[in-house]
């Protein structure tokens, strides 16, 4: 199969590569760019584990081809917080409220929560539950996840007012 040259900016680093047009964006990120923080748990667009930010929008990287991301700017879990720097409020909330156990669904939840909170900075619990209902977790029963997002909103508000 003929390959196509693409260039994608991921976490502020430029990745160029030749990919088959059929290669999914998720596989490109994981295999070609060796950013394995993005996880694949269903590969049919239901579980949300592979969610990334593409030009700021939360998308499922298993449902896109890498060639569709040519020229785009992506953020994956690895790129949310600066290396060695402080965690984001969402990551902090997940840590404080036991929002993860095995950690496999976590990349998708954390990325989705970032996108959600950007659009809903002061959400109700009901809005959080609806906003994150497209991501599946099998470990936590979502208890810590919902609270983590509430906490992240709180930290963000504190940061803004501080």
């Amino acid at each position: 199969m003929s390959k196509q040259l693409i260039s994608v900016r991921i976490n502020d680093e430029l990745f160029e590569g030749e990919v088959e047009p059929r290669k999914t964006l998720a596989d490109f990120i994981r295999e070609d760019c060796t950013l394995t923080g993005t996880h694949l748990a269903c590969e049919h667009g239901v579980c949300g584990a592979c969610t990334i930010l593409l030009d700021g929008e939360a998308v499922r990287s298993c449902l896109m081809f890498a060639v569709q991301a040519d020229g785009a700017s992506l953020t994956t879990l690895e790129g949310l917080a600066p290396e060695g720097g402080p965690m984001t409020p969402v990551q902090q909330g997940f840590m404080e409220h036991h929002g993860l156990q095995c950690g496999f669904c976590t990349p998708g939840f954390v990325i989705s929560a970032h996108a959600f909170l950007r659009d809903h900075p002061d959400p109700t619990e009901e809005e959080i539950r609806e906003g994150l209902s497209g991501n599946l977790c099998r470990c936590t029963g979502y208890q810590g996840i919902v609270r983590a997002v509430q906490r992240a909103a709180e930290i963000t508000r504190e940061d803004v007012t501080a």
């Binding site: 923080g37 690895e78 965690m87 990551q91 950690g103 976590t106 954390v110």
Partner: peptide, 17 residues
């Protein structure tokens, strides 16, 4: 708080794939 979390929250876990 969990010792596991910083690596799993930053995308640096080591799963089988």
């Amino acid at each position: 708080q969990r010792r596991e979390d910083p690596r799993l929250l930053s995308g640096h876990g080591q799963y089988i794939d």
